[in-house]
């Protein structure tokens, strides 16, 4: 872990006063946040809060209209996802990370295939490394030749996470990895998030589920209507507080009242 002169940890990823407008629409306003190595930073927000826009700025798909992005203290203005990937920022998009009909190991090395000295695909090495890396993450795949499409949703996310970690991601951005999963599988994915964190990766976990966030998060940012409304740190926040803040407190009470009286 790198530290600055005054002993503070240099954030793996930092946004300073970032705003993003699409024409007359203000999607994000004055977002400042930081993500430390070896921690899980949760970004919580309801639909339309600006989560997708934020992910796209972090992963290089969109460029910020104002403000800047810093990777390990250095300013970067990504113009493409490839540049972000090159700087060690890997994004796992929900359900868009693996090719269902391809085998596990082929998916694992897709775009980064290992080659023999004769420039052919080194399938043996690919299988070995794949099995090893998946085991390191605590993922036990029955058969590396089986198509990814036959894995469960949780296992598929896990393969994508293990792949990002293996290829040297320093920052791992997960776009709602648990939203399409059942309770048990969500637990499995949360376990892998913790594994990635323990390997020193800075994890950005984007979700609308405060319960999932609470289980693994070290720092919580609440996004509402394009603004960061709250920031919590683990140990100084209760689960109920997070749920309340996430649901917009007063709004939820009003809704509950409305439902009861109906």
């Amino acid at each position: 872990m790198t530290t600055t002169e005054d002993g503070a940890v240099t954030p793996a990823l930092q946004l300073k006063d970032v705003s993003k407008t699409f024409g007359s629409v203000l999607a994000l306003r004055d977002i400042s946040l930081h993500v430390d190595p070896g921690t899980v930073t949760c970004v919580l927000g309801d639909n339309g809060a600006g989560k997708s826009t934020l992910i796209k700025i972090l992963s290089g798909v969109h460029q910020a209209t104002e403000g800047h992005l810093y990777v390990a203290g250095e300013r970067h203005d990504f113009t493409s996802p490839r540049e972000a990937l090159g700087a060690g920022i890997a994004t796992v998009f929900q359900d868009l990370a693996t090719v269902p009909l391809m085998s596990v190991w082929r998916n694992f090395f897709l775009g980064n295939e290992p080659l023999t000295p004769l420039r052919t695909l080194d399938a043996r090495k690919a299988r070995e490394v794949c099995r090893e890396e998946l085991l390191n993450m605590g993922i036990d795949i029955r058969d590396l030749e089986q198509p990814v499409g036959t894995l469960s949703g949780g296992e598929r996310q896990a393969v994508a996470i293990a792949r990002a970690v293996h290829f040297g991601a320093k920052v791992l951005i997960l776009d709602e990895p648990t939203s399409a999963l059942g309770v048990k599988q969500s637990g499995v994915v949360l376990k892998y998030i913790r594994q990635a964190k323990q390997r020193g990766v800075a994890v950005v976990f984007i979700t609308h589920n405060p319960h999932h966030a609470f289980m693994v998060g070290d720092r919580f940012y609440l996004l509402n209507r394009g603004r960061l409304t709250n920031e919590f740190v683990k140990g100084k926040v209760e689960r109920e507080e997070l749920v309340q803040a996430m649901a917009g407190g007063a709004e939820l009470e009003a809704l509950a009242h409305e439902l009861e009286s109906a």
Binding site: P81, R82, L85, T91, F93, L96, A97, T98, V99, L110, G111, N112
Partner: peptide, 8 residues
Amino acid sequence: IAARNTGV
């Protein structure tokens, strides 16, 4: 899309 996301 998955292929593009992984850099193919």
